[in-house]
Amino acid sequence: MVLAGLGALEYARLARQRDSIRIRIHVNGTRGKSSVVRLIAAALRAHGVRTYAKTTGSLPRLIAPDGSELPVFRQGLTNVIEQLRMIAIAAADRADALVLECMALEPRLQALCELRILRSTHGVISNAWPDHLDVMGPTPRDVALALLGTCPANGVLFTGEREHLPLFERACRDRGARLVRIGDAEATAITDAELARFDYIEHRENVALALAVCSELGIPRETALAGMWGAEPDVGALREFPVDFFGRQILFVNGFAANDPIATERVWNLALARHPECETRLMVLNCRLDRADRSQQLGLALSRWAPADHYFLVGTGTFALARTALRAGLPATRITPLEGESPAEVFEEIVGAAGRSALVVGAGNIADIGLELLRYFENRARLPEGRAA
């Protein structure tokens, strides 16, 4: 058991540290967790609340009250005991608020992180989409039930989930929590002008969720948004990098953090809608040998989406995605496996397929070569106007 090493005295110390932090927000969900953590923490800071936050997404980071970030170093495998260290740091610095991204996948550990470690005052479950079915599944309903392990006891739970609301209502009744649902009305209340103020592509649903939490905490909307606009985005945030390569216009979209079929299709469709001027449409899918089920899900889904002109498969275990996509009807001539190739070699393959202008969307996973490709394109992209090198 994870807390077996904690004796009575140690657990009493954790309880004192935790309870000294007035606002404790636990953020969970399939997609958008890291972004929502950063948005809420930035709004709290803008309101003058001494806030620590921790993300566990693309690269784990501890965000201090002044907005500076420190990498979270790990010895060995990831362990939820790490959250105790974050609570201790925040308590020692007399923080008023702590915003933690849930780092557990196994259903019992998700519940343990909430009920035994953080005991949040406010919970957020961004959505409950089918992902990590090998751990939280096998069905989408099972995923929702696993995520609901972080429903706060006698607190408030915020969610943008649409499909599994009866489960959310039942979990809130069971734990004496109040459910706040974020729907289309709240999302569409975020204007295009407000979204344009972000330095990256932020999703309306994430902003609406964060604003709902801020409203509950008494933070004025304009104060919250001002803080969010100035926040540093997660490395996995949806961003665009225009590259002019010897006359070829290549627009790279970092969607690597979208690694389930629903999120990946949304990113793909959004990129297509934003850039109809690109003549060629390319997709780079980063696979992981230890996520064969996810590769198979993406392989099945690709043939149902708006087609790309070519698909480049990078990372490890690309065979699972390629085989599934071929069986689902994707032409073999449109698939190029590049397992084991370097970012430079992948870039050359993309350039060769780009034509005069190309939209290139990365998806699947940001780990390893995903992050390397992101940096490769970012370092070769045109600088925004007014920004010095």
Rank of each mutant, 00 (worst) to 15 (best):
E163T: 09
A185W: 00
S215I: 04
I219L: 15
A226N: 10
N127M: 01
W229T: 12
R162K: 13
E202Y: 01
A237R: 12
P138R: 00
E205I: 11
V124D: 07
A231C: 11
A212H: 03
V213R: 00
A189M: 02
N127F: 02
M228G: 01
F168D: 13
G155D: 15
E169L: 08
L133M: 04
D134A: 07
T223V: 15
N127Y: 03
A193Y: 10
L148Q: 05
Y200P: 05
A196I: 09
A193K: 12
A128I: 04
P152Y: 07
R173W: 00
R173I: 00
H132P: 10
R173T: 05
G149C: 10
R175E: 06
R239A: 15
A224M: 07
E240I: 09
G123L: 11
R175C: 01
G137E: 01
G137C: 01
S126D: 13
C214H: 09
M228A: 07
L167Y: 13
L238S: 14
D199Y: 00
L147W: 07
G236P: 03
G183K: 06
A171M: 08
C151N: 15
D199A: 13
V207D: 04
L209Q: 10
R181L: 07
A196K: 10
C151I: 15
D131W: 03
A237M: 15
P242R: 09
R239C: 01
M136P: 12
C151K: 14
G160D: 05
R173D: 05
E163F: 02
R204P: 12
I182D: 01
L209C: 08
D134Q: 08
A187C: 14
R141M: 03
I125R: 14
